[in-house]
Design a protein around this nucleic acid. Structure first.
Lengths: 226, 226
DNA sequence: CGTATATTTGATATACATCAAAACGCGTGG
DNA sequence: CCACGCGTTTTGATGTATATCAAATATACG
């Protein structure tokens, strides 16, 4: 979302601001849907709880993203939205939002645009899972993370994964070990670098090279990393 | 969508009706976005064209579904929407739709609900691809097809797949051979039956059993089919 | 009827999961 | 500060589901 869009929202909607700390939820599975939420700062994850009790990471969201669209049709939420660090969301009652949409069509088109964008992102994610190898999936994941930071004007030379390998794994449909191995291979290929302290910090010396690798992997050809 | 919703749309939007025959496109990748389309009858598929030229099936849509949401944010279409048999779509210029939304908030909420529903479906598809075995994915695919027919009041005892095995395969992220084998195994387990003529007709003697199989597969446990 | 295309089935290869264990980091309490 | 325990990450050995390769059969279509 642009700065102008943000200003419009603040002015037109008078959203309720809410700070959340690491682990706190914006909403939880099964809660009745009343509000949409716009991320003002921080990182948020979406968790789905399967019949088998297994929890699974199904989405990552950053500043500017909206949360809660899934509730509109169902009337309640189909997943948890949890803060990955300290962050702030702006919450708007959906019934109020509808009123404002009528008064200010700009707000309506903004809402549609955000929903549409979200759908496109989701689609890209499906394609990635369906078509890419584990290495390429992890590379793609990192590339998208860098993109997200870039778009928001944050540093991208070194990024801090706010997820465990296990979470990355079930987001990408693979095991902890496969994630770890993929990262090791990417590091060996100099596509990423582990910072000196801890292996949760990942340096991306050349984002373009990472993109190139993802693309090369989607085309048929020889295996590239070992 | 309910019948009431359909009537509302027809009355409020005066959509342009358009018949399409097998293979004709509602819109194509790259075309500028101007309209949203509501399927009045027939079956439609969404095709994505990758960098490698490879085309991939990324969505299936039926009566009542809307087409074209992806264009709102981008300004053009990111995929082709193609008729799988003879069908009719009702097309509405997006700019006109916005006007009507302001005049009749009911239409606006209807639009939001459809977008939200579409997002939920997409999410379910991702989870399916990420977590299920090939057999279960195919079973799940069939089950969803039956659901779609059921919701629209059509016969579900025997369904006609309007897709080649190859298309089913790349929709589900697997190869032709795996689809074929999965279908054979499901048939051997009596979860499906091939009709006497041609193997494009599939009988579903017991939809509930199919669902049960999908659920059983998502839980950890012994392999079930051979 | 004959050719092209779709489907099935079999044999083999391989990417990834699973199982197992070691190394590392991190907080807690002595 | 160090020792201990616990969770995370890495790495290795092995198993298996699915892709790949190849060929036979079935179906559609001119």
């Amino acid at each position: 979302m642009t700065a102008a869009a943000t200003a419009l929202l603040e002015l037109a909607l008078r959203p309720q601001r809410r700070m959340l700390r690491q682990g706190e939820a914006v909403f939880r599975t099964g809660e009745p849907f009343t509000c949409l939420h716009i991320i003002h700062s921080g990182f948020f994850k979406l968790l789905h709880f399967g019949a088998s009790g297994r929890q699974q990471l199904i989405g990552l969201h950053f500043k500017g993203d909206w949360l809660g669209f899934d509730g509109i049709a169902r009337g309640d939420h189909g997943c948890d939205a949890v803060a990955m660090d300290t962050g702030e969301v702006w919450s708007v009652r959906y019934d109020h939002l509808l009123q404002v949409c009528v008064e200010r069509p700009q707000v309506m088109t903004l809402l549609h645009t955000e929903m549409s964008r979200e759908m496109a992102r989701e689609r890209e994610a499906v394609l990635s899972v369906c078509t890419l190898s584990t290495d390429a999936r992890v590379a793609h994941f990192l590339r998208r993370w860098v993109d997200a930071l870039e778009q928001r004007g944050l540093r991208t030379d070194s990024i801090t994964l706010k997820l465990t390998r296990a979470e990355i794994g079930d987001y990408l449909g693979m095991t902890v070990e496969s994630v770890s191995r993929a990262l090791s291979r990417l590091a060996r290929a100099r596509l990423i670098e582990f910072a000196h302290k801890g292996r949760r910090e990942v340096g991306i010396p050349d984002p373009a090279a990472l993109s190139a690798f993802v693309h090369a992997s989607s085309a048929p050809g020889p295996t590239l990393l070992q």
